[in-house]
Design a protein around this nucleic acid. Structure first.
Lengths: 137, 137
DNA sequence: ACAAATTAATTACCTAGGTAACTATATTCC
DNA sequence: GGAATATAGTTACCTAGGTAATTAATTTGT
């Protein structure tokens, strides 16, 4: 019964990566969860909070909090939709200006984390993870 | 640059598994992090909190909290060591009595989570994860 | 032998993410 | 058209895990 070990290793790996990313984002006053939102908004433009939740597979309450912190920092604005329940979230000019710098830092740390992990292994790992995840959902 | 995707999938996978485990533990009034401690204590007997931290790669403060909850529930006791700074943590009779039931529930949910994921893939995934994790530490 | 440095555990405070309950707006269904 | 239902977002409260600072006990170094 080594399923325990599999789960344990996965959990630890996830935590280590999160910690390293947070460390790299610290100089910019950003955290992991905020970066995830910023990254998606930069790629997709304007999204409702529901759409962000669905995309990132996160429940609504933590998303509300993450967005509120980003609003307070001036990196995101909430625009009321035609459907008045919805809030369309988008990056501010300030965030768009700083984005390349952030992405650069993130890419650099990601590259460092993968440096000694062969790209064939990365491919294989990515494939296995996606396959398992899709079965779970 | 699909490192983003690799990290994102890993993070989500970890969260999904944690959620499923928590769901399975709910009837017993236990949570994921508590189970990790109980599992190790059952295997290893008595350990100091420091040893538990090292084994589970968790910082001391969250470990203190997890143990305090287990003490309150009557599943764990803290025995002062010869080195008076240390606290040796061990399962209570109550916990030892209930352990098989808990393990059974956990094994069942783990089995369910891995059901449609071929065991060759499990092996491969486990190998890749461990290899990457050891490079990071 | 005693001052300085180290270590185990705790406390306070932060982010991350989960559920349950609530509010306000939209949609459905007689 | 109006009552019932569903949906988007928020609030309150829980566990999980991180850092920084604190306390008490032990070990080191002179």
């Amino acid at each position: 019964m080594y399923s325990h070990e599999l789960f344990h290793t996965l959990h630890q790996l996830s935590r280590q990566l999160t910690n390293k990313l947070n460390e790299a984002l610290k100089p910019f006053g950003l955290f992991n969860a905020q970066w995830a939102v910023i990254f998606v908004l930069n790629k997709r433009g304007s999204l409702t909070q529901k759409e962000l939740c669905d995309y990132l597979f996160v429940e609504a309450p933590p998303m509300t909090r993450t967005i509120q912190r980003l609003v307070k920092q001036g990196y995101v604005k909430q625009v009321p939709g035609i459907d008045k329940r919805e809030k369309h979230v988008q990056l501010t000019q300030e965030a768009l200006k700083l984005y390349p710098e952030w992405e650069n830092a993130v890419n650099k740390v990601n590259q460092g984390l993968l440096k000694h992990f062969p790209s064939a292994s990365q491919e294989e790992l990515s494939k296995l993870q996606k396959s398992w995840l899709h079965q779970l959902l």
